[in-house]
Design a protein around this nucleic acid. Structure first.
Lengths: 159, 159
DNA sequence: TCTGAAAATGGACCTTT
DNA sequence: AAAGGTCCATTTTCAGA
């Protein structure tokens, strides 16, 4: 899909995963490249889709979304139409932060971020009880978020 | 924890969650504030910890980490020392992208990002079979990542 | 809110391999 | 061609009035 990534690219990716606001001249020092070279590579990585986007990570607690809930869902029918409709209803929900379609004992794993239990309860009605294709689901309430992120383990030589 | 957030703050947070590289003058236009006001607010939000950090989201497929795996873990003992040791061993693993300590049928939910099954198999040996405090675990393999992110549902008036 | 200095980005152009 | 480096214009950030 994308061009070959050399060790410069990997180092840059590691760095911007950690802090996307590191200035390009600092990045250059860190990886032994000129600012311009860093700029070009970052631009290329963005265009190729290696870097999907830049985002600010907001503290859930600071904005009142202190409750993380993980739900596992089994569907009635895996027929493509029904499955896609169900999938869409999940992903369209703003409180669904992550949605994975999985193989194993369950069909979907959903990660909710909500303000309080009552809100989750409501979503449960809407997304699960309100969907005839949802056969059963199980809820796990997060007591602590020990590690949260989207960073990939880009170790050199491990690629 | 943090000061009160007004609707300007919320709008700004929404915007930088979506694209952290939107220039402050554009943000200003979008929310009807001057560039300087946007600058001050963003600075404050960062200092208060409302914005935890800025990060580049890297495409897992582009760097060979195409396999997402979700594991649920039950521990033997919830005694604090053992629990913390187990928790640390999970969070220290670079391939563990997310780790939640949960209430319900399981104790931990882990989200792995790996290159291939064999790698997960190895981690399984290290983190699960190699830890006497892990009683049992279950693996779910992601067939598709339908929605992935850390964005919070910051709707106006919903706070 | 406005103004201006400092910093950062990103393009032009030339050189090396 | 592909990629690096230097230099320079433009854009962006950020502090003071």
């Amino acid at each position: 899909m994308s061009a070959q990534l050399d060790s410069y690219d990997l180092k840059l990716l590691m760095a911007v995963q950690q802090d996307a606001r590191t200035p390009q001249n600092e990045l250059g020092e860190a990886v032994s490249l000129s600012t311009a070279a860093v700029n070009r590579r970052l631009k290329r990585l963005g265009e190729e889709g290696v870097i999907e986007r830049y985002t600010a990570v907001v503290s859930p607690d600071a904005v009142g979304y202190g409750l993380t809930i993980i739900a596992m869902v089994e569907v009635e029918s895996e027929q493509i139409d029904q499955l896609d409709a169900t999938r869409r209803s999940f992903t369209a929900c703003p409180q669904v932060q992550q949605c994975y379609y999985v193989a194993g004992e369950w069909d979907f794993v959903l990660l909710f971020v909500v303000q309080h239990m009552e809100q989750y309860n409501g979503l449960t009605r809407q997304l699960f009880f309100g969907n005839a294709n949802v056969k059963r689901f199980k809820t796990l309430v997060a007591m602590s978020r020990d590690k949260v992120g989207l960073a990939l383990p880009l170790e050199l030589g491990a690629g």
